[in-house]
Write a protein that binds this DNA or RNA. Structure first.
Lengths: 139, 139
DNA sequence: TTGCGTGCAAAGGTTTTGCATGGCA
DNA sequence: TGCCATGCAAAACCTTTGCACGCAA
């Protein structure tokens, strides 16, 4: 019985892409931003290749994927398989800014909703929509 | 000084679209499903028109929009214009069920995030993703 | 009569697929 | 040497825009 599929060769493109994602730390990038990044560096990596590597990395849990309400998906390296499970994101509906929310209250929310409502929240995929500080002031 | 934009005429297309969304209750649909629905009924409504109505309904809070991880957006009617302002929604990533979460915790969350993080959460547009009771047990 | 609403076609943007070639094991 | 990986181009999707005509107010 073969384990089948995906020998997963180590290639320069694959290494560079992962390296770049790691270097970004907590930041999210879109496919297009990755393309631009390598274009600036004069490193040629086809966008198809980028899509395919992101797909693999995503499936194996190395990176996370967010579906923003408009436009394209965002990817982010998983620094430490545990840490990032525990924060949410706020997205401003006006300026579009994405804010990382590190806060103990959210732990409580997750526990509460699990215990009282039998629902296990996936913090990675959950995004709070609303209005950010700056936009509140400007209105 | 004009209030400008959008007289919001009442048109047959607009009525039919809203009526259809209402008839679906809690269920959500994609734009494509709406197009198909009217096509089957031999009712001609251009997809552009559907997009424009959904946009308006979404902006005025009459319907909710979800960004699914793959593919296109989903829309759902907000059953009761007041009630749903005051609670969050949980959406199961596995079976797709949408759960209305009535819980005092919500108030706390909103207040906390506003006071400590200067962000005003829009409960209407915020959806918690995760796994529901039933699907937890089945796995 | 005014100007928003509608449909069609085309454009825009993101992601996927087909195929010949290149490169890792 | 056998296959997977890569790049390019094209296709496939989803959504938005431009424009002429229709229709509600």
């Amino acid at each position: 019985m073969k384990t089948r599929r995906s020998a997963n060769y180590s290639t320069q493109q694959g290494r560079l892409i992962l390296e770049y994602l790691v270097s970004l730390g907590d930041k999210h990038v879109t496919v297009n931003q990755i393309v631009q990044h390598f274009r600036k560096q004069k490193i040629l990596i086809g966008q198809t290749t980028i899509y395919r590597h992101l797909e693999k990395l995503y499936n194996s849990g190395v990176i996370r994927r967010y579906a923003l309400n408009e436009g394209s998906a965002c990817y982010q390296y998983v620094r430490d398989n545990k840490v990032c499970q525990e924060h949410f994101h706020l997205k401003c509906e006006i300026c579009g800014e994405l804010i990382h929310l590190e806060c103990d209250l959210l732990d409580e929310i997750q526990k509460h909703v699990y215990k009282k409502h039998s629902f296990r929240i996936n913090a990675l995929k959950t995004v709070f929509y609303g209005t950010c500080d700056r936009c509140l002031k400007n209105n």
